[in-house]
């Protein structure tokens, strides 16, 4: 194609779009690692192509997708720790040594003091913001705890035990579900560990025949235990059953067969 010469702009553009094929692709693959100029041009072309992505019609992210993502990173997170707040010390200032330097020294000291105050104010502002966030989180956690307690004590909550179809298999799950409020707690036991990149996903199967609703992602610990507490679910959806599938780590919007655990409520609350 090039006989050892540089790659054409056309081929670089096609390559950046993974649209180059045939001999030209082989020639480019051989040339590119040896040519900084062509790599630079590829970089520029790739930049031009990036803006093509901005031409597409914009779609807002579905709220359920956002929730699912937040669940998946929560399931993949260690327990959150509070970042200690560090207040930067005010910089030390040197004392002026000669009387002729007094005005300059005063000016310099003032400048340093102002700079130091600026740093301190910024740091304090950041600390304030973090404390505000921590307080908001604490409030959220408190509300969450109260909801959990209310669900556990609700006489009308449904209790569902999920097992494999074969009675001899040990993994089990137990779900407590309050349809009227869309509140759910699930506890799994003796669950098999999963390979890297896989995760369990709990599904609410509505009684009215609607599509299964994602009800949380989880990975069991070493003991095989896992739980899902208060996943975001719509209120007022009676459950026909609950099921668990194995999905890719980010979860899925529809279940991937097979269902590894399933169970139906015995009654409409007890």
């Amino acid at each position: 194609m090039n006989g050892g010469r540089h790659i054409s702009q056309e081929d670089l553009a096609l390559y950046a779009m993974q649209a180059l094929d045939g001999e030209e692709l082989n020639a480019l693959r051989a040339h590119l690692p040896t040519c900084a100029l062509c790599r630079e041009q590829l970089q520029e072309i790739a930049g031009d192509l990036t803006v093509l992505g901005l031409s597409v019609e914009q779609h807002p992210v579905p709220e359920a997708a956002r929730q699912r993502f937040m669940e998946s990173i929560a399931a993949d997170s260690p327990a959150r720790t509070t970042t200690p707040i560090v207040i930067a010390p005010e910089p030390a200032r040197k004392r002026a040594s000669g009387i002729s330097w007094v005005p300059w020294a005063i000016a310099a000291a003032l400048a340093i003091a102002v700079a130091g105050l600026g740093v301190k104010m910024r740091t304090l502002n950041e600390a304030l913001q973090r404390q505000g966030s921590a307080m908001a989180r604490a409030t959220e956690e408190n509300v969450h705890s109260q909801r959990v307690l209310r669900l556990l004590m609700a006489p009308s909550a449904q209790h569902v035990t999920l097992t494999t179809k074969k009675p001899s298999v040990e993994p089990t799950g137990h779900a407590i579900y309050l349809a009227e409020r869309g509140e759910l707690i699930f506890q799994g036991s003796n669950l098999k560990s999963l390979p890297e990149g896989k995760i369990y996903e709990l599904w609410l199967i509505p009684a009215d025949g609607r599509a299964p609703i994602p009800a949380g992602l989880f990975r069991p610990g070493k003991s095989g235990d896992a739980s899902v507490v208060m996943p975001p679910l719509p209120a007022g959806v009676p459950a026909k059953a609950f099921g668990i599938t194995i999905e890719n780590a980010a979860g899925a919007s529809t279940p991937t067969m097979p269902i590894v655990l399933s169970g139906a409520p015995d009654s409409q609350g007890e």
Binding site: Q58, P60, V61, M70, A74
Partner: peptide, 17 residues
């Protein structure tokens, strides 16, 4: 997680679109 959520909110629409 909060930082990750911020990035998701910042670029999620673009990626999804």
């Amino acid at each position: 997680q909060k930082a990750m959520t911020s990035l998701f909110d910042r670029y999620g629409g673009l990626v999804y679109s």
